[in-house]
Deep mutational scan, measured.
Amino acid sequence: AEEIWQQSVIGDYLARFKNDRVKALKAMEMTWNNMEKKEKLMWIKKAAED
């Protein structure tokens, strides 16, 4: 689920960090860890469908 979420937001994060992939990935990891369980559930369901 986290991978699907990352694939959907990586472009936004890379743009925000001027294509600094290391910073973008760290920010994504922090965002994922801070997400509410119900927000993650949507992505977990999406992962299950694929």
Rank of each mutant, 00 (worst) to 15 (best):
K38V: 10
A47L: 07
E39F: 05
K38T: 14
M35R: 01
W43S: 02
L25T: 09
M35Q: 01
K40N: 02
L14V: 03
E36P: 15
W5K: 00
R21A: 09
E49S: 09
K18P: 06
E3Q: 13
T31Q: 07
D50S: 14
I10K: 04
K46P: 04
N34T: 11
I44R: 04
W32Y: 01
K37P: 15
V9T: 03
Q6C: 11
A27S: 05
G11N: 13
M42W: 14
D50C: 15
A1R: 02
Q7D: 09
K40Q: 06
M30G: 06
N19E: 06
E36R: 05
E3K: 14
K40C: 03
K45L: 13
L14Q: 02
K37A: 15
G11W: 11
E36W: 03
K46C: 09
G11V: 11
K23A: 14
G11R: 13
M42Y: 15
D50T: 14
M35Y: 02
D20A: 02
I4G: 04
Q6D: 01
N34V: 06
W5E: 01
K46I: 11
D12W: 10
Q6F: 08
E49R: 09
R16N: 06
A15I: 12
T31G: 07
K23I: 08
K38C: 15
S8R: 05
A47S: 07
K26S: 09
L14S: 02
L14F: 04
K45N: 11
E3W: 15
E36Y: 03
L41R: 05
V22P: 06
I4L: 15
G11K: 13
N19G: 14
D20Y: 02
R16M: 13
Q7Y: 07
Q6A: 12
K45G: 08
W32V: 01
R21S: 07
V9C: 05
E39H: 05
K26R: 12
Q6W: 06
M30F: 14
K18Q: 14
L25K: 08
K37I: 15
G11C: 15
E29A: 12
M28W: 00
N19H: 08
A1E: 04
L14A: 02
L25W: 07
F17S: 03
N19I: 02
Q6M: 14
K37Q: 15
E3N: 10
T31E: 10
N19K: 05
I44S: 06
K45T: 14
I4S: 06
A24H: 00
A27V: 06
E36N: 11
S8P: 00
A27H: 07
D12L: 09
Q6K: 10
V22D: 12
Q6I: 12
T31S: 09
V9Q: 04
S8V: 09
M35V: 01
K26A: 14
I10R: 04
N19L: 06
V9P: 01
W5T: 00
A15V: 12
L25F: 12
W32R: 00
E2C: 12
S8N: 07
L41C: 14
L25P: 00
A1V: 05
Q7L: 14
D20I: 03
V9H: 05
D20P: 00
K23P: 03
A1G: 14
K46D: 04
W43R: 02
E3Y: 15
E36Q: 05
I10N: 03
V22W: 09
N19V: 02
K45S: 10
W43A: 03
A48C: 15
M28V: 02
L14M: 09
I10A: 04
K45M: 11
W43H: 02
A48T: 10
V22S: 11
N33K: 13
R21K: 13
M28Y: 01
V9N: 05
A1W: 08
E29D: 07
I4Y: 15
T31D: 14
E29F: 07
E39M: 05
E49L: 12
A47V: 06
A24L: 03
K38N: 14
W32S: 00
A48G: 09
E49C: 11
A48W: 12
V9Y: 04
S8I: 08
E29I: 10
L25V: 08
E29Y: 07
M28S: 01
N33W: 07
I4M: 15
W43D: 02
K23D: 05
